[in-house]
Amino acid sequence: MVLIGYRLSPEQVAAVRADPTAVDTLLYGDLDDDEAEMPEPELDLDKSWHGIHYLLTGTEWRIGEGAGAAILGGVEIGQDGGYGPPRLLDRATVRAVATELDALDVETLGARFDPDAMTAAEIYPDIWTDGAEALDYLMAHFVELRRFYNAAAANDQAVLVAIT
């Protein structure tokens, strides 16, 4: 399971709200065209998504406000691809997420890393006993998450995220 994300213009948001099946095309390309390539995500958190969510919220699945909405927040839209439907975060939510992610530095977030608690909570993937290597993996992806939301907020865009 990996988390991918796309920044959406107001026109794209209107299109997916009018026709939620358009979400699949945004995420996976034209599945009816054997020659079509899958669109490259603008955010690829790989398998770090659940660990980052845990560091942001201190919980396995609870969705918080601000930075706590970065991974699992938003409104479900489109079809369930096997790990829950994609989620759409509107422009106001994206700005709030970006602001709070900016307020967190790698050291502050890294101080929340507790391999034993994350293993006990069954945070995906089960790599937390790898210690510093697992923390480095999370922090590298956290920096990418922050960059993605900052770019979306700066361009007044919404965000579509999906676990695939």
Score class of each variant (00 low, 15 high):
4 I>P: 00
5 G>T: 04
6 Y>G: 00
9 S>I: 02
10 P>F: 04
11 E>G: 07
13 V>Q: 06
13 V>E: 01
14 A>V: 02
15 A>D: 05
18 A>E: 14
21 T>A: 15
21 T>W: 11
26 L>N: 06
28 Y>E: 11
30 D>F: 10
31 L>V: 12
31 L>I: 12
34 D>G: 14
36 A>F: 09
37 E>W: 14
37 E>G: 11
39 P>I: 06
40 E>C: 00
41 P>L: 13
44 D>G: 05
45 L>M: 09
48 S>K: 03
55 L>H: 00
59 T>Y: 14
60 E>A: 13
61 W>N: 12
62 R>N: 12
63 I>N: 01
67 A>Q: 03
69 A>E: 07
69 A>N: 05
71 I>Y: 03
72 L>F: 15
74 G>I: 12
76 E>K: 14
77 I>W: 15
81 G>R: 15
83 Y>I: 06
84 G>R: 14
85 P>S: 15
87 R>C: 10
89 L>W: 04
90 D>S: 02
91 R>M: 02
91 R>W: 06
94 V>G: 00
95 R>V: 07
96 A>I: 03
97 V>W: 04
100 E>S: 01
103 A>V: 00
105 D>S: 12
106 V>F: 03
109 L>C: 04
110 G>E: 08
110 G>K: 13
112 R>N: 07
112 R>P: 06
113 F>L: 07
115 P>A: 04
117 A>V: 05
120 A>Y: 09
120 A>F: 08
123 I>Q: 04
124 Y>H: 12
125 P>V: 09
127 I>Y: 04
130 D>F: 07
132 A>N: 12
132 A>W: 09
133 E>C: 01
133 E>V: 15
135 L>R: 08
136 D>S: 13
139 M>L: 15
141 H>T: 01
142 F>G: 00
150 N>D: 02
150 N>C: 02
152 A>D: 00
153 A>I: 06
156 D>K: 08
159 V>R: 02
160 L>K: 03
161 V>F: 11
162 A>M: 06
162 A>Y: 11
163 I>C: 09
164 T>K: 13
